[in-house]
Amino acid sequence: MEAGFNGDGRRVVTADRSPLTFGVEEEFLLLDIPSGSNLPVADEVLARLTGQASEQSRHEFRQSMIEMVTPVCADLTQLRDQLAASRAAAAGAAAAIGAQLVAVGATPVREAVIDRPAAERYERIIRQFGPVALDPALCGCHVHVGVPDRELAVQVCNHLRPWLPVIQAIGANSPFHMGADTGYASWRSIQMERWPSLGPSPYFASAAEYDHTVQRLITAGVMLDVGMVLWYARPSARYPTVEVRVADVAPTVDDAVVVAALVRALVATVIDDIRAGVPAPRLRGSLLHAAHWRAARDGLEGHLVNPMTGELLPAWRLVDDLVSLVGPALHRAGDLPAVIAGMERLRTEGSGAERQRRVHRRTGDIHDVLVYLAGETTGNGAR
């Protein structure tokens, strides 16, 4: 993909050059490390959280999961501090009842008890979607970027489509299932494809067309409500944001910060394009699906598909193209040095999936991988 710079080397920028606000939702597993099994103890963990940590916590679709949500942040320092504090608080609450908070995209061993919070909506989901709703728990990283105009938010989602497979590859962090390597860097992505309302964001000409399509899908039973729009980018149903939800939960705070910074810069970049009259690329659906499948399979350690051309390229070629594309927005926000450093670390150490595999290659024991992941989640592990 081309970076899309003008002839003088500069991108068109918006009149308002202030950085966009953003925030992150992180989903975590609650594990029993000795057995490797998920633990259905979310109620107990959440009950132990106090103050801001309690306000930032959420139930999820499994009692073996919790979600921690940052407040609206203005810069990477604030975001990093919020992520670190919420992870530490949640990990402490879990440890107090004998569980470990683990940032991993998919259940790595087993979920012996498929349990969920007592809520009518969850019961409706299970009745509607059957065994798909009873898969083992999955954990994502959802980045919200403030876009106050909903019409603009729909257009932003159109423009993001070619680049979300690259974000997916950067965030890949779930190679194991049933204690074995699946061959995929993001097994979460493969499991989630069973949901009929999940996948690449469709192209919409307007917010009205978006709303009409969602209502038709609700009528068809593909979704129960607007909260079940699970596309990889969407105008949030709750906040004045675009929500990008393609990445696995990040193994470390630093990994989460890099993903969030890239997403914010990508949204800022495509807003510049929209206001400059640049149309969104019209992609073939088959190539876009192929690009996401390849990102789930290879992560950063193989090849990715350019959905604009269908060309198969080394993953880092497209990652470098993305960083070049959003470089001006990163610079404006003051994020460029942190992102460059983070990308160099990923280039050296590998994605979250590769780091897990490295531990497993060294010891041959999935439990060593779980111990490693628990340490990475709160920054207390050894590299």
Rank of each mutant, 00 (worst) to 15 (best):
R194F: 07
V214T: 07
V257C: 06
Y232E: 14
A185Y: 10
L217P: 05
P196R: 09
W231L: 05
A237M: 02
W195S: 11
L230H: 14
R234Q: 12
V222T: 10
P200W: 04
N158A: 03
L230E: 12
R245S: 11
L198F: 12
Q155P: 01
A237S: 04
D254K: 02
E209W: 05
A169V: 08
T182Q: 14
I167E: 06
P251T: 07
A207I: 00
S189F: 07
G183A: 15
Q215E: 13
Y203R: 11
A205K: 00
M223D: 04
N158G: 03
F176N: 11
A233T: 13
V154I: 01
A256M: 08
H177I: 07
A185F: 13
W187E: 15
A169L: 08
W195N: 06
E243N: 08
D225L: 06
I218W: 04
V226Y: 04
A169G: 08
S197R: 09
N173C: 11
V229E: 04
G221Q: 01
H212Q: 12
S186W: 09
V242I: 13
E193W: 07
A250K: 06
L198N: 12
Q191L: 15
T182C: 12
M178W: 13
A220R: 10
V244P: 02
V229S: 10
V156G: 03
V156T: 09
E243F: 04
E209F: 03
D254A: 14
Y184T: 14
A220S: 10
Y232G: 10
H212K: 03
A208Y: 05
L152Q: 11
W163M: 02
A207R: 02
Y203V: 06
G199F: 07
F204H: 08
I170V: 15
Y203Q: 11
F204I: 00
V154S: 00
S236K: 02
R188H: 06
G183H: 10
V253L: 12
A256N: 08
P251Q: 09
G221N: 01
A247L: 09
F204E: 01
F204Y: 15
A180K: 14
G199R: 09
R245L: 09
V242R: 11
R194T: 13
G183P: 12
E209C: 01
V242S: 07
I190C: 07
L152I: 06
L152C: 01
P240G: 12
D255F: 14
V166H: 07
D211A: 13
M223W: 00
E243H: 07
I190P: 03
P251I: 02
Y210C: 00
S174P: 12
M178S: 13
